[in-house]
Simulated scan of single mutants.
Amino acid sequence: MPIEAAAGHELPLVVDGTDVRLSCISREGEGLPLVFLHGFGSTKEDYADIAHHPAFAGRPFFAYDAPGCGESHCAGLSKVSIPFLVETALSALAGHGIERFHLVGHSMGGLTSMMLAHGAPDRIASFANIEGNVAPEDCFLSRQIFHYPNNDPKLFLEAFIARNWAAPYYSSPLYATTVRYKVRAEAVRGIFESMVDLSDHGDLMDKFLGLPLPRMFMYGEQNNTLSYLPHLAANGVELAEIPFSGHFPMYSNAPEMWRRIADFQRRAEARPGD
C-alpha cells in the first residue's frame, strides 16, 4: 500500500494538567492496529515505511512524536518523563479510538511500552520490545545525564551528540547528527533521570517477564552480549537478533527489522484465542 494511504495529523491533549499537541501519522485499515512508540532522539518517521511493506498491506497503524520530540508540542517540557509518556500514550490511544493493538517500542519507547503493557496487558495483542530498558545495563545513553553532568541542557545535549557521533556502533553517527533537531534540550533531564530510576529500581525484568502476552526482544548483533538475553529466552521471550545493527535496527537493517516484526505479529494472531 503506498505511503499516500498514511495521513499526518495533530492530536491535542491535556496530560497531567499540561497542554500537549501530538504530531501523528496513521492509517485506517482492517485488523488490529499496530502502535509504535519511538526512542529518545527519534521520531514517528522511524516507522513510516510500514506503509510500503506488503506484509502490512491494509493494516491500520498509529505513531506519534512523543512530547518534547519531533513536531509535537508540550507546554511543560520539564514534566516529560517515562510516567508522563505512559499517560500520554493512554490519552493518545483514547483520542485515536484504539482499544486493542500490537505494540512496538524502541529504547525510550520500549520502556514506555512496557510500562503501558504492564498497566493494561489485556489491551496488548503482542509486544515487540526493540532494546527497551529491562535492566540497569541498558542505560548506556540515559545514564550519561549522571556520568557527564551539565546544568545547561543545551550544552549537555551537544556533548551527548558528539559522544554518540564518535561511538563505534552501526548508525550512531546517523542518529547523532539528527538528535538536535528531534528533541528539545529542556526535556532531556526528566526523560533520562526517569529511565535510570526505573531501570535501577523499577523491577523491569519482572514486569517484562510477567506480561501475559506474546513478547519479542529485538536487539542488534553488536549488543548480543547483553547479560540477560539467555534469561529472557529461558522465560519464553522470543529473541530477534538483527545482523549488521546496533541499537538502531530501523536505520541499520530496516528490512530485517520489519520482517521479524511481521512474522512475530502473524504468529501472535494465529494463537488460539487471539
Rank of each mutant, 00 (worst) to 15 (best):
residue 239 L to H: 08
residue 107 S to W: 00
residue 172 S to C: 14
residue 269 E to D: 15
residue 39 G to W: 05
residue 251 Y to L: 15
residue 171 S to D: 05
residue 261 I to L: 10
residue 102 H to M: 09
residue 79 K to T: 07
residue 183 V to A: 02
residue 107 S to Y: 03
residue 256 E to K: 13
residue 223 N to E: 14
residue 33 P to C: 06
residue 68 G to K: 07
residue 153 P to R: 08
residue 219 Y to V: 11
residue 158 E to G: 07
residue 207 K to V: 14
residue 229 L to M: 08
residue 202 G to W: 08
residue 146 F to L: 14
residue 66 A to D: 01
residue 38 H to W: 09
residue 166 A to P: 02
residue 15 V to G: 07
residue 62 F to C: 03
residue 146 F to A: 09
residue 226 L to V: 02
residue 85 L to Q: 11
residue 243 P to K: 13
residue 214 P to A: 12
residue 269 E to P: 00
residue 213 L to G: 09
residue 92 A to Y: 06
residue 268 A to Q: 04
residue 241 E to Y: 01
residue 253 N to L: 10
residue 182 K to P: 04
residue 167 A to Y: 10
residue 60 P to G: 04
residue 127 F to L: 10
residue 124 I to F: 09
residue 15 V to L: 04
residue 17 G to A: 09
residue 185 A to K: 12
residue 3 I to L: 15
residue 213 L to F: 14
residue 159 A to Y: 10
residue 187 A to V: 10
residue 10 E to D: 15
residue 49 D to F: 12
residue 242 I to S: 02
residue 46 D to W: 11
residue 227 S to A: 15
residue 221 E to F: 03
residue 76 G to E: 12
residue 139 C to H: 05
residue 178 T to M: 13
residue 12 P to L: 04
residue 32 L to C: 00
residue 62 F to I: 03
residue 160 F to A: 05
residue 151 N to P: 09
residue 171 S to P: 01
residue 201 H to D: 11
residue 105 G to A: 07
residue 106 H to Y: 10
residue 252 S to I: 02
residue 267 R to C: 08
residue 9 H to N: 09
residue 95 G to H: 06
residue 134 V to D: 07
residue 65 D to P: 06
residue 228 Y to W: 06
residue 260 R to G: 07
residue 10 E to P: 01
residue 235 N to T: 00
residue 105 G to V: 02
residue 30 E to C: 00
residue 259 R to M: 06
residue 74 C to G: 05
residue 208 F to E: 07
residue 60 P to T: 11
residue 146 F to V: 06
residue 273 G to Q: 07
residue 60 P to N: 04
residue 240 A to P: 08
residue 23 S to T: 03
residue 84 F to K: 12
residue 223 N to V: 00
residue 43 T to W: 01
residue 95 G to K: 07
residue 66 A to K: 01
residue 200 D to F: 08
residue 104 V to S: 04
residue 85 L to F: 03
residue 169 Y to W: 12
residue 18 T to C: 14
residue 85 L to A: 06
residue 147 H to T: 14
residue 92 A to P: 06
residue 233 A to D: 01
residue 208 F to R: 02
residue 148 Y to W: 10
residue 192 F to S: 04
residue 6 A to M: 14
residue 198 L to R: 12
residue 232 L to C: 06
residue 155 L to R: 15
residue 14 V to S: 12
residue 171 S to Y: 07
residue 18 T to G: 00
residue 54 P to V: 02
residue 81 S to Y: 03
residue 272 P to M: 05
residue 243 P to E: 07
residue 245 S to I: 05
residue 41 G to N: 04
residue 252 S to R: 10
residue 106 H to N: 15
residue 258 W to L: 13
residue 199 S to M: 11
residue 46 D to I: 12
residue 48 A to H: 13
residue 222 Q to G: 11
residue 161 I to W: 00
residue 208 F to H: 05
residue 218 M to P: 02
residue 77 L to I: 02
residue 198 L to M: 11
residue 106 H to T: 12
residue 104 V to A: 06
residue 88 T to G: 06
residue 141 L to F: 15
residue 167 A to G: 08
residue 78 S to T: 09
residue 239 L to Y: 09
residue 254 A to H: 13
residue 38 H to F: 13
residue 107 S to M: 05
